[in-house]
Design a protein around this nucleic acid. Structure first.
Lengths: 202, 202
DNA sequence: CGAAGTGATGTGACTCAGAAACATCACCCT
DNA sequence: AGGGTGATGTTTCTGAGTCACATCACTTCG
């Protein structure tokens, strides 16, 4: 379906990431991004609803992938198992080439509150979609919400480790490890902190 | 310390809430808000960093209150108990007059993605502050993060019920009920959904 | 093979958010 | 009475985001 120069959208994303990394996000103008992609400001806004969104391109897809994988999990799976299946499937959609992209994106987000805000929104939306997918499996609302939150947190944590320079483990392995870690953390919500526990009589 | 007409900030908040409720958030201009408060656009931006923020005025205070209450909880308290103490203290700072305000605010947020995004960010910041307060009590990172998330969710849920027209219970009672509900939900993360459980052999 | 159609892009003009430099006013203190 | 201080107003500017309209490439059909 491509006509003109193909991949206008991808060119915009690439241009945005490069320019923002080089000059900083606030110093980068939408016109500059469009220019570098060989397009105009108007066209930019035809592809993305606002300046922030170009850096989060494709993330709405994650909700769909996660939700579908959860729906496809075996009926007898527990909420956590369904979530594990979901984020595992999501993890397999990430190719190694996306590591560099991810590194740059995380660096940008860390440096700009505007982007942190959008990231928080994306997190919430992803968790919501996951919650709905679990509720469709008859998981009660509260449990669904928490399981979803655990899953999204596990995935983000895994992603953060995956893009680190020396990372050796696959994103898939990291997501599973992350979820396990959070499961055990959840089991300790009613346990006094170690420092206190150590001072209790044996 | 008030000089001119006092309460400029409060006047801006009130004007913003009224105008946005009447005309819708996107149709309301910063200049209009300032005008109605008897001020100018520049002064608006001296009090609030952006247009969205005027509707979330005072919420940064919540982080401080919550964190301080958690720090003040008894040393032997479990993470959840510390969080319960925190949100209970926070709940007691809400006077009944704030119910109407809360109603209008929630209605606005529900109707505007811009405001949903800011609300998600506020949620994340509140959870972060809570997490830090728990980590200061030697609670391990993962557990702290989840306990914080539970607390913030419980508070939001309680707030949503508190502002409902027919609500009778105090915000304090509602936060405690909300947290209890989430605690039991957390205990079911590894339990298959009811529909499935019912079909298992007794 | 050429004309109409379709979808993506460009142009120009506009509104509003938000920042900055500078002027002004009310109040306080001495 | 006069200077200091802090809050406000004035003006101007940049950039985000919207819109109406024109244009171009490519397709399809007569």
């Amino acid at each position: 379906m491509a006509r003109w120069e193909p991949n206008a959208r991808a060119r915009l994303v690439r241009a945005a990431l490069e320019l923002c990394t080089a000059q900083g996000y606030p110093a980068t103008t939408v016109a500059q991004i469009a220019d570098r992609a060989g397009l105009t400001k108007t066209t930019f806004f035809r592809h993305f609803p606002d300046k922030r969104e170009v850096l989060f391109a494709g993330q709405d897809e994650h909700s769909r992938i996660l939700a579908e994988a959860i729906a496809a999990a075996p009926v007898e799976a527990t909420p956590i198992e369904a979530v594990a299946a979901g984020i595992s499937t999501l993890a397999t959609t990430f190719t190694p080439e996306r590591r560099e992209f991810g590194r740059m994106l995380i660096a940008l987000i860390d440096a700009n509150d505007d982007l942190k805000e959008r990231a928080a929104y994306k997190h919430a939306r992803l968790a919501e979609a996951t919650t709905e997918a679990l509720k469709a499996r008859e998981v009660p609302t509260g449990t669904a919400g928490l399981a979803a939150e655990l899953g999204v947190r596990a995935f983000h944590e895994a992603f953060a480790r995956w893009i680190e320079p020396g990372a050796e483990r696959s994103l898939l392995a990291l997501t599973q490890a992350g979820l396990d870690r959070l499961r055990t953390a959840a089991a300790q919500l009613d346990t006094p902190a170690p420092a206190e526990r150590a001072s209790l009589p044996l």
